[in-house]
Computed example of a mutant assay.
Amino acid sequence: MIKEIIVVEGRDDTTAIKRAVEADTIETGGSAINARIIQRIALAQKRRGVIIFTDPDHAGERIRKIIANKVPGCKHAFIPEADATRKGDIGVENASPDAIRHALARVHTSYEGAESLIDMEDLVGAGLIVHPNAAARRMEMGNILGIGYCNGKQFLKRLAIFQITRDEFISALAQVEEGGKE
């Protein structure tokens, strides 16, 4: 049984989580998160801890940001888009139990205001910004590090808040350079 309560977007996500692991969930009901749901998440965070596990799409990232801003100290699980896509539909509900377990095994805790261990020059040098394939490289790097996909500015912020070390960054970059093998 996972101690923390996993926050997901809907019922189908809860079903997928319960196929993969024994855990309790809170469903946001999609992107229209109301104050009552935020209160439930805040109580869950205080009592047991929370893992935010939203879809790897724009709406899922929006929900993740809203929760993280209103309920500090949440943990985050990210699933690669490729593992959450079936017949063109992107969502946690489409992920295999193995993909869900893998994402939950790589949970990160955010530390708002954390000092960055990687800087913008590192991103430029790694081809993660200002590079013809920067978006694809960030997606691959985000999947390897377990921090998900985002734009360059957000990627730098995630490296900081999840305290990704220089060694982790260099190791992930080497995997990207080798073709993304984990």
Rank of each mutant, 00 (worst) to 15 (best):
G152V: 00
Q175E: 12
A95C: 12
E112C: 08
K181D: 11
M120L: 10
I144L: 15
G91H: 06
E112T: 05
E178Y: 02
D13Q: 07
I51C: 05
G142P: 12
E115F: 09
V21E: 14
G180V: 10
T28K: 01
R106G: 04
G148E: 13
N143R: 12
I2T: 00
L117V: 00
L123W: 07
M120W: 14
D122F: 02
L117N: 08
H102S: 15
I38H: 10
E177V: 13
E81K: 14
I38D: 14
D167H: 05
E168C: 03
E4T: 03
A23I: 03
E178R: 12
N94R: 06
A20Y: 15
A95G: 03
I33L: 06
G10P: 07
A134R: 07
A23G: 03
L128I: 08
T165N: 08
T25P: 11
Q175I: 02
A20K: 09
L104A: 02
I66D: 00
R166V: 06
A32R: 14
K153W: 05
V124R: 14
I33C: 03
D83C: 14
A59Y: 04
E27H: 03
L43N: 06
N34L: 15
E27T: 07
R138G: 08
R47S: 08
S171I: 01
S96Y: 10
D167K: 11
A77F: 10
A32W: 09
Q175N: 03
R138N: 09
